[in-house]
Nucleic acid binder design. Structure first.
Length: 119
RNA sequence: GACCGCGGAUGGAGGGCCGCUCUUCCCGCGAGGGAAGGGAGGAACUUCCGAACUUCACAGGGCAGGGUGCCGGUUCAAACUUCGCAGCAUAAUAUGUGCGGGGCAUAGGCCGGGAGGCGGGGGCUACAUCCCCCGUCGACGGAGAGCGCCACAGAGAACAUACCGCCCGCAAGGGUAAGGGUGAAAAGGUGCGGUAAGAGCGCACCGCGUCCGCGGAAACGCGGACGGCAGGGCAAGCCCCUCCUGAAGCAAGGCCAAAAUUGCGCUUGGACUGCCCGUCCGUCCCCCUCCGGGGGGAGGCGCAGAGUGGGCCGCAACAGAUAAAUGGUCCUCCAGGUCCCGCAAGGGGCCGGACAGAAUUCGGGGUACAGUCCGCGGUCUGAA
RNA sequence: GCGCCCGUAUCUCAACGGAUAGAGUCCCGCCCUGCGAAGGCGGUUGUACUGGUUCGAUUCCAGUCGGGCGCA
């Protein structure tokens, strides 16, 4: 297995999965992000991204998703196993580069107590 | 040379590390791993036109509805269709693929022309009309079929009882449409004749209409004859005429198909065993009964219909995803901006790469766009 | 992706193609009150933008821009 792999298994892909997290998950809010999270059944950590059209055009939205996906990919070993996470950047979100994205994701993880404490 | 505007081209380059997606091959029981190769644009944006494609509808004709509107030339597709050639894939003369020619856009783009509107200048001594030139604009059939509207001002805004006038008349009344005034628009213009005053009432020129001739490929123009001249504007108001037009759209459409439900058929279930026999354990409810059993329901199994969740095709000619890939980060170079040091050559610091992201495909239009290059036009400045 | 609709004051809505674009609300000033609320009087604020048709455009037409809706 690759160390920083990010395949389709790490993404929420079905409407059912999203709805399960919305229905029974907890909501955590930081300055720029809103997140829903829920401990899943298996060990896989999965992420889903939602970006509103209010954020901007397709280029801006894609850039935002790529940054957040990259931040998740690089720091996902710190995350608790089995986490299902949905991230929604707020409309006025001023995220410019990867460093800011990782910092935002870190504060989100601490605030939601999703750290991998080694079981 | 600088600046501005318009049009066109281009839309940073190389590398390291970590990732995503597709195809082919290899390894692996599998999960997966590895190798090679492909992976956003001129606008992918917009959805303003059209073509292909798909499903539905469809005897023929008409109406309604929607659209179109001076003339000529030119421009058109990796889609579709037709023909020819080539050679690859394959068992194949079929199919796919490549090349070339033809067809195909009602209304688009570009170029040119013609009438027309507006503005400016000039000409006919002057006004008006008209003519010529320059600039500019436009979706440019019909107001000689009908309906409707035309504020304010003005007497009057459309089959005129004409306000001030002019003329006749003592007056009542009548005749006038020249002149004044209003307005975006008021019964063709100028001149002469004519008349009580006037008027296409008559005449000349111009304008308008009809017909004929000539020129032009056509729109149209020119000339001649005839008609005294019908009654304003608006059709991007309704409308009439010409011509075109079946509807919807890949979320089209086709296929596979859990669970639950519906229908039909069959039916004691499990363990021991390779299988049968056999043994053991479990065996819901109702009705009939000659106590052997039989029938029905529930349950179980199978099949079928429909088609939800979901998936596949449509969807690839070297992008082909589907909560939707084509990325992140660092270094060097190339442009660029700004600041500091310096007389200058130059050196250093900081910032930093336009607009923008495929979703069946193709063509045209529209819009956005840093920097660089090219062309055209304008203004300013300088030199000869 | 495809198809469709709508843009008027801060907000909710009016306005046969006719001029100064209205009504409530908001805001501002004054009056009233010991102060405020309510009330009264007065005022500010504009047709998304750019062209075209027309004597004249919020209205008609075209194009940009910005919102919204439907379709599995």
């Amino acid at each position: 297995m690759k160390k920083f792999a990010f395949s389709r298994a790490s993404r929420l892909r079905l409407k059912k999965e999203f709805e399960a997290v919305f229905a029974s998950g907890k909501k955590t809010v930081t300055r720029d992000l809103v997140a829903w999270h829920y401990p899943g059944g298996d060990k896989e950590k999965k992420i889903g991204l939602m970006v509103s059209k209010k954020t901007g055009g397709a280029v801006k939205r894609n850039r935002l998703k790529r940054l957040l996906r990259e931040a998740f990919r690089l720091s996902r070993k710190e995350l608790k196993e089995g986490t299902r996470l949905i991230i929604y950047p707020k409309a006025g979100c001023a995220m410019q580069n990867l460093a800011q994205a990782r910092q935002e994701l870190d504060t989100l993880r601490l605030r939601a107590r999703l750290n991998d404490d080694g079981k």
